[in-house]
């Protein structure tokens, strides 16, 4: 079944892009609804996994953009990160996770997606290009710009500053 084979990948991509977020459950559901109802549009069955992840990326991007618009008109609070049960008993890591996505929320949406997929998920640049439907050069540019912005903002963040030292952006 489609769900059993790809649900973990979809969940992982959503978590990487959005961080701790109460809407991941709904997005996960929506991704599979979209996949099931539009599977007939998939021309190459060999690209099923990539296609599923592409839907997840699209859904996550749409959510981030909706929030930014709502935030502009002050319909929602500036922070949507919800509290979660820490996986580690160390408060530092769970706080770092929270603050990382708080900082990421300040990045342009496409740069945030490129950064999270590359830097946190470790996805290949070519794969990111495929999921986000842009060229490899564009992905490289987005990742580099996002890394630079993230490090700059993170250094101003009291929690993340401790994790980072000068010269962290890969050359």
């Amino acid at each position: 079944m489609l769900f059993d084979r790809y649900a973990a990948d979809v969940e992982r991509v959503l978590c990487r892009i959005l961080g701790p977020d109460s809407e991941i459950d709904d997005l996960l559901h929506e991704v599979f609804i979209v996949a099931i109802t539009s599977i007939d549009t998939l021309r190459d069955a060999g690209r099923l996994r990539s296609w599923m992840i592409g839907i997840a990326v699209h859904k996550a991007r749409k959510l981030i953009r909706q929030r930014k618009i709502r935030r502009l008109v002050r319909l929602v609070a500036p922070h949507e990160l919800h509290d979660y049960e820490a996986a580690s008993a160390t408060a530092e890591v769970s706080e770092a996770l929270r603050q990382t996505y708080r900082v990421l929320a300040q990045l342009p949406t496409d740069e945030r997606i490129a950064f999270t997929l590359r830097q946190i998920d470790g996805m290949e640049l070519l794969a990111i290009a495929e999921q986000t439907r842009v060229s490899l050069a564009t992905v490289k540019r987005r990742v580099a710009r996002a890394q630079k912005t993230f490090v700059t903002l993170a250094r101003q963040n009291e929690t993340l500053a401790e994790w980072l030292e000068p010269g962290t952006v890969p050359q």
């Binding site: 990487r16 994790w163 962290t168 890969p170």
Partner: peptide, 23 residues
Amino acid sequence: TTLDRLSAEIAREQDELMSRGDR
């Protein structure tokens, strides 16, 4: 790099959360 170290910790924390949840 320290950025890589932070990213790895974030990924590990997320993986742990995902493995424990019943999502």
